[in-house]
Design a binder for these strands. Sequence first.
DNA 1: GCGAATCGGACCATTTTAGTCTTAAAATGA
DNA 2: TCATTTTAAGACTAAAATGGTCCGATTCGC
Lengths: 173, 173
Amino acid sequence: MQITKAGEYGVLGLIALARRPVGEVVMVDVLCEEEAIPRSFLGKIFQNLTKAGVVKSSRGSGGGFCLSRSAAEITALEIIEAVEGPIALQRCLETEPDCEHIGGCALCGLLTEAQDRIKEVFAKTSLADLAQRHLPNGLVQQARDRSLIPLKRDGQIGEKTNEAIFDGPLKQV
Amino acid sequence: MQITKAGEYGVLGLIALARRPVGEVVMVDVLCEEEAIPRSFLGKIFQNLTKAGVVKSSRGSGGGFCLSRSAAEITALEIIEAVEGPIALQRCLETEPDCEHIGGCALCGLLTEAQDRIKEVFAKTSLADLAQRHLPNGLVQQARDRSLIPLKRDGQIGEKTNEAIFDGPLKQV
DNA sequence: GCGAATCGGACCATTTTAGTCTTAAAATGA
DNA sequence: TCATTTTAAGACTAAAATGGTCCGATTCGC
Ligand code: FES
Ligand code: FES
């Protein structure tokens, strides 16, 4: 009953990508650093996102990934299902159920309801929403390591803040 | 992102138990047969339910399990958490989060919301609710094997129905 | 007190996660 | 054209979780 690490990284990676203007192509190394994700793992995850049509890939030098459409049009549900496969709280709720139980399975009734609620939540939040209220994970950790307090989202500055921390790959804070 | 087999069997087993009047002690073998659950597995699952105070156990001959209170007072959430541990869609949402990410993690925000919805659904359905709208799994399968159509919940009788199928351990249909 | 019945808990096999590594293919630009 | 850069694809692996069995300690009925 947990979301998998792959799903988690997928969302995080895309959030990092969504901080850029649409169409800007950025390579996986950069995204990994920003969100503190193991490099080669995110690569594999983004393959699935490419197949699902969420991002476009271009190889060779100067290559990388970019969103295939505006972040506002990409839903969290789409991302998670692209990475983890369709959400199914139980085998009987998969696209082809394998259970012989005719109508009247209370368990699957319950699970269906729960599953619908989850999907609702995931479907109604867009990648843009997420990107807006997210502080880059990796950079926050770096700040901590150097015992600095990072910039707050609202624009206030922490006591020992060093603005340079957030300078590198991303600009507006 | 799936409920585990143990959780599933736990609920199913308790539903079978809830078909009896409260306090009636019945051994695990019977429950297993009714819901088609591997015998010794359900035993282990019920251990957890005992610890959690959902059922009471008594050993020795004539022993077995019984509900510790009325089925209406037992919630699905309680059952599932007793068997699988607290519901946490991600490590950061566990009782003691291990993540260094300060405020502003969009992912965990999203996941928290989803998790709350799930818990709501599970918390609002009682074991009694479930038992009411459930056709015993194992018996349905047995009926199928003998190519009989089982009794419908609403009282209508299927074409080739054999009433005896549902006679054994459970009474009112 | 005895033997049968039943849970309790240790144990084990298989599958899934969470990654890594290597090789190939494509794009850039010198 | 050729070296370099970057993803694509997929084989491979260690570790954890799942799904389940089995036997021994208890307890009950007699
Ligand atoms: S177990 Fe298959 S429908 Fe519920
Ligand atoms: S990853 Fe820890 S709070 Fe979101």
